Amino acid sequence: MQTNDPVSRNLAGQIVPTSWGELNWKITDDAVPGAEMTFGTCRINPGERNGLHSHPDCEEILYVVSGRCEHKLGDEMHLLEPGDAIRIPRNVRHWARCLGSEPLFALIFFSSGKRTAISHEEEGSTFRR
């Protein structure tokens, strides 16, 4: 729903349940007209991971608030804990897997109000998430 309000209210956002957790988009070009960035939250359930994907039209920054994860970025694996942030360049394939018994909760930022994710789990699928 598009409004002229530049503020994303506490309960607002587009909640997207997934097989591995949940995304909640707070600021997008659809929700806040003219937004040139995307901001949201990501929850990954213990032992789960999101699919291998890349973003052809923007870079992403993921900031871990709570929980731990291993993050595959290209050919490298990184361990992320609360307070860690990772920059994911445009077109680099990546995924995150939650480690331990606590869900991963992260803030996610994209350098575009419109972001495209290309899935590399099922070759050729493109989706906006």
Score class of each variant (00 low, 15 high):
37 M>A: 12
11 L>T: 12
13 G>K: 12
110 F>E: 09
16 V>R: 15
55 H>Y: 09
42 C>P: 01
5 D>N: 15
99 L>K: 04
42 C>M: 15
73 L>S: 00
38 T>D: 06
101 S>A: 12
104 L>S: 03
123 E>D: 09
51 G>D: 07
29 D>E: 13
53 H>D: 05
18 T>R: 14
85 A>G: 03
6 P>F: 09
48 E>P: 01
66 S>T: 08
118 I>C: 07
56 P>M: 14
43 R>A: 11
77 M>C: 01
2 Q>H: 13
105 F>V: 08
84 D>Q: 01
55 H>K: 13
30 D>K: 13
61 I>S: 08
86 I>C: 01
111 S>H: 04
115 R>D: 04
17 P>H: 14
48 E>C: 10
127 F>E: 14
21 G>W: 10
112 S>I: 04
110 F>V: 03
92 V>A: 01
5 D>P: 02
84 D>V: 00
24 N>G: 05
48 E>W: 03
34 G>E: 08
76 E>R: 00
5 D>T: 10
76 E>D: 02
104 L>V: 02
83 G>Q: 06
7 V>F: 11
113 G>Y: 04
76 E>P: 00
57 D>H: 12
111 S>E: 06
55 H>T: 11
96 A>S: 10
35 A>W: 06
76 E>H: 00
2 Q>L: 13
118 I>G: 01
44 I>E: 10
67 G>M: 09
101 S>I: 05
91 N>E: 02
49 R>P: 00
125 S>P: 02
35 A>Q: 08
70 E>W: 02
9 R>K: 15
55 H>L: 11
110 F>N: 10
63 Y>H: 13
23 L>G: 06
62 L>P: 00
27 I>R: 13
91 N>G: 01
44 I>V: 14
19 S>E: 13
66 S>I: 03
108 I>T: 10
111 S>L: 06
69 C>S: 09
37 M>V: 13
105 F>C: 04
25 W>H: 13
47 G>N: 08
33 P>V: 14
56 P>C: 12
72 K>N: 01
8 S>Y: 04
80 L>N: 03
8 S>M: 11
81 E>L: 07
114 K>E: 10
105 F>P: 00
61 I>A: 10
16 V>S: 12
114 K>H: 14
29 D>Y: 07
118 I>W: 03
61 I>D: 03
113 G>W: 04
59 E>C: 07
127 F>M: 15
34 G>D: 07
48 E>D: 06
3 T>Y: 09
33 P>C: 09
64 V>K: 13
47 G>F: 05
98 C>G: 01
76 E>Y: 00
29 D>T: 12
33 P>T: 14
58 C>P: 02
29 D>N: 15
61 I>G: 04
124 G>F: 06
124 G>T: 06
99 L>P: 01
8 S>P: 02
22 E>H: 05
87 R>K: 09
55 H>Q: 14
8 S>V: 06
14 Q>H: 12
9 R>C: 04
15 I>H: 11
105 F>D: 08
1 M>S: 11
67 G>R: 11
98 C>K: 04
14 Q>Y: 09
86 I>K: 01
14 Q>F: 08
123 E>V: 05
39 F>K: 11
82 P>D: 03
125 S>D: 11
18 T>K: 15
51 G>E: 08
26 K>E: 05
34 G>F: 07
28 T>L: 11
56 P>H: 13
128 R>I: 09
